[in-house]
């Protein structure tokens, strides 16, 4: 494919996130099959594909959350174990129990775990850092609330604030816009774009094809196999969508 030929060895070596030969199976069924992916540094990449195409599984396997059958991910040309402190992961909101007895600020402070470890005392500086992250997503007034009292959009923003607290260079988000209100969607995309403008790299599993071109500059199209990848103008075409979705979706413009 054309974009692959244009990809130099330099971009490969400098990539914050490279996947090679990744295969993941649940029971006997392969949900991700021999997938290669190369994320450009400083890009905003949407992972798109139909339901059950392996989008979330791709991220989880890359992060070692599920065990792949074959293949692995490398980050800045180093294995995962050496790169964890530079990676922030935002799981699907629905993956946790929001009735858990904890406050908003405590969730954000979890993002400082790498720094705090088992014993380091929480200082005023840590709390200020967490509050600054909450401010960045517009949730500073909710710091003392129990997380179960938040709306879905507010919960998603708290998850993003926790990722911000990690101070990572690579942000991997699983469906950050699923079930959130329009105001939250705008707030989240503004934060993600500001991260990109700071030179960080953002990869998000995304399901709303109508906003791909508006929000992202790169796209990775998957339906168990890799279908296409590259800049939105090159890889987000009717041809690649037909290949991934079996002709069930049309690009509106």
């Amino acid at each position: 494919m054309a974009y692959e030929a244009s990809m130099t060895e330099a971009t490969l070596a400098g990539s914050p996130f490279v996947v090679r030969g990744l295969t993941v199976a649940y029971d006997a069924e392969a949900v991700v099959q021999d997938v290669d992916m190369t994320v450009s540094a400083g890009s905003m990449t949407a992972i798109i594909g139909p339901n059950g195409a392996g989008k979330s599984t791709l991220l989880k396997a890359a992060l070692g959350i599920v065990r792949p059958l074959a293949g692995a991910a490398r980050f800045w040309d180093a294995p995962l174990a050496q790169s964890r402190r530079r990676i922030a992961y935002v799981p699907q909101r629905a993956s946790v129990d929001w009735d858990f007895p904890t406050r908003v600020i405590d969730v954000v402070l979890m993002g400082l775990y790498q720094e705090l470890g088992l014993f380091r005392r929480l200082s005023a500086r840590h709390k200020q850092a967490a509050m600054a992250c909450l401010e960045r997503v517009g949730m500073q007034d909710f710091a003392e609330r129990q997380i179960g009292q938040l709306s879905g959009g507010q919960q998603q923003r708290v998850f993003l604030a926790r990722a911000l607290a990690q101070g990572a260079d690579l942000y991997l988000l699983d469906e950050p816009f699923a079930g959130v209100d329009a105001a939250t969607e705008a707030a989240i995309i503004a934060v993600l774009k500001s991260l990109r403008d700071e030179g960080r790299t953002v990869v998000a599993v995304h399901h709303d094809l109508s906003t791909v071109a508006q929000y992202f500059d790169h796209v990775f199209v998957i339906n168990r196999h890799r279908v296409a990848e590259g800049p939105v103008v090159e890889a987000f075409t009717q041809t690649t969508l037909d290949a991934a979705y079996g002709g069930r979706v049309r690009l509106s413009d």
């Binding site: 989880k60 992060l63 070692g64 959350i65 174990a81 964890r84 990676i87 992961y89 799981p91 993956s95 946790v96 129990d97 858990f100 904890t102 969730v107 979890m110 775990y113 790498q114 705090l116 470890g117 088992l118 926790r162 991997l172």
Partner: peptide, 21 residues
């Protein structure tokens, strides 16, 4: 007491805890 933070973290959000290693 010793393992409070990892126990709380992985009980609340196992996926995130795993992403931290």
């Amino acid at each position: 007491l010793l393992f409070w933070r990892p126990m709380a973290l992985s009980t609340f959000d196992e996926g995130f805890a795993r992403s931290l290693g």
